[in-house]
Design a protein around this nucleic acid. Structure first.
Lengths: 106, 106
DNA sequence: TGCATTATTGGCCAAATGGCAAAGTTTGTC
DNA sequence: GACAAACTTTGCCATTTGGCCAATAATGCA
């Protein structure tokens, strides 16, 4: 079915879209080093806590992180460490982009 | 430097963001099978050609694809086949999401 | 119970995104 | 040059996004 493919692609797109923001990437990088509470992540990102909380809600909604309440704090942890492996590929895209720019200048 | 990290993350985010759309994923999937002209991609995506052209411009801007004019046609090809490897990871996120839903129902 | 701490939610606004239609560009053909 | 074909760009519009602030939970402690 054609609509079937669409749906699968949209599900994938939702997850990849969640990765398409610098603050969320920073959060994931932090979480790659172990679980952290919202306050810690807020400090790392450098935005309002409400903003960070929304980013976390989004990451959770797509299944990239999980949360755990402990007392008055909420700890988040990375559910899909494999996403960290994306970066090598992304870096290579960035690098070849630089090469192309150089070629254009020459 | 702190701003340095931000910048790197934003560069990464731009590329990942470009992957966060079903139509663009479909385009990339098509291109994974070899270069294709805009008309072919338009047919595959099922949107207006102008819309597809914009998606292609975006993918090109972030360095994921390259274009080549041949006569009146423009052919696009995938520059970073490694992005296709993301999907396994993304699928695993989707799968564990389903598992979590099932756990909630039980 | 009252109050502080930690986090989430709702309200609001500016900016970005994605879509089609119409106009413009480039190439090939007559 | 005129016309068609293949794309791209521009214009416009509706929707989404991301940010802060203020208000609302939820927990811990005196």
């Amino acid at each position: 079915m054609k609509a079937d493919r669409r749906e699968r692609l949209e599900a994938r797109a939702r997850i990849l879209k969640a990765l398409g923001h610098a603050s969320r990437l920073m959060i994931l990088e932090e979480l790659a080093g172990g679980e952290k509470c919202v306050a810690e992540l807020t400090r790392a990102v450098g935005a309002d806590m409400s903003t960070v909380s929304k980013h976390l809600a989004l990451l959770k909604a797509v299944g990239l992180v999980e949360d755990r309440r402990q007392g008055s704090q909420v700890f988040y942890r990375l559910l899909a460490p494999c996403v960290m492996g994306f970066f090598d590929c992304v870096e290579s895209v960035m690098a070849s982009q630089v090469q192309r720019q150089i070629r254009l200048v020459k």
